[in-house]
């Protein structure tokens, strides 16, 4: 079985996000990038399947600064192949889907697993777009994948803990919400070791015609703290004020 896992980097939201002078995009130089957490879960679920049934896992990402690091990290965690797609920087979801479909069509693929969403998905989520460019079925918001011959059994989450189970003919694309277990950790030393031994393949994206069908007019920060009255002071003072507040409101 061949599992392809498209992964990408997104800004680390712990850091301050700055808007550039055009007012239409984030200041790229101020961003600290990290692997999108949902893609980390997709990779984890793929590696669990590999351990269960002996699959070949390929992680694939678009070329960008420091992308080699997330690909080598994927290899250090257990991905068998790593591929960098060149010629398309910061693609929109539609462009990424069309380009990945080209690359994946040329490879053996049974399961394509990627994160259910990313924090910067303005024009839709990759999994379903990619499934349509590939012409294969999709199930998104998935928390478990089991493979049974030519079929996969996937669990799709609705709200309030309700889950729908589907049986799907392979190949298919899965949008992973969460893996069955927490994504594994790999020490930096092992990643460095992998950088010396693993091969990073490169494939060029060509003739990408897809577009988002929209243009960005303005990027802004929502007025922060607009609603909240801020409680000042030391931690002890703040705690006392909170408790007074609960008494005043008849809660405690």
């Amino acid at each position: 079985m061949n599992i392809i896992v498209p992964i990408k980097q997104v800004p680390d939201l712990v850091e301050e996000l700055e808007i550039d002078s055009s007012g239409k995009s984030l200041d790229q130089s101020s961003l600290k990038m990290k692997l999108s957490e949902f893609d980390d879960h997709a990779l984890e679920e793929a590696l669990i399947l590999k351990e269960e049934s002996g699959a070949t896992v390929t992680a694939i990402a678009f070329d960008s600064e420091d992308v080699d690091k997330i690909l080598f990290t994927a290899a250090a965690k257990g991905a068998d192949k790593i591929i960098k797609v060149t010629g398309l920087e910061n693609p929109s979801s539609h462009q990424a889907a069309q380009a990945l479909a080209q690359v994946i069509k040329a490879m053996p693929h049974d399961l394509v697993m990627t994160g259910v969403q990313a924090v910067d998905d303005r024009d839709g989520q990759l999994a379903v777009l990619l499934a349509h460019y590939l012409g294969v079925p999709h199930v998104s918001v998935v928390t478990s994948v089991k493979v049974n011959g030519q079929n996969a059994v996937v669990s799709k989450e609705y709200g309030a803990g309700l889950v729908a189970e589907y049986e799907v003919k392979l190949p298919m694309v899965v949008g992973v919400q969460a893996a069955r277990q927490s994504p594994r950790y790999v020490p930096v030393a092992k990643v460095r070791q992998t950088m010396k031994t693993a091969t990073l393949e490169e494939v060029a994206a060509t003739n990408i015609t897809a577009s988002t069908g929209s243009s960005i007019k303005k990027v802004s920060k929502p007025e922060s703290g607009a609603g909240a009255e801020m409680i000042e002071g030391s931690a002890e003072e703040q705690a006392s004020k909170i408790i007074q507040l609960l008494k005043d409101k008849g809660i405690k």
Binding site: S93, H94, A97, V116, Q117, D121, R122, D123, G124, Q125, A127, V128, L129, A131, H132, Y133, H138, V139, S140, V141, K156, E157, Y158, G159, G175, T212, G213, S214
Partner: peptide, 21 residues
């Protein structure tokens, strides 16, 4: 969970713009 399966699919099938979130 339901709409996320539909929007992108209809966008590609009908060449329509899509905005999410």
């Amino acid at each position: 969970s339901m709409g996320m399966e539909i929007g992108p699919a209809v966008s590609v099938d009908n060449s329509m713009s899509l905005v999410s979130f």
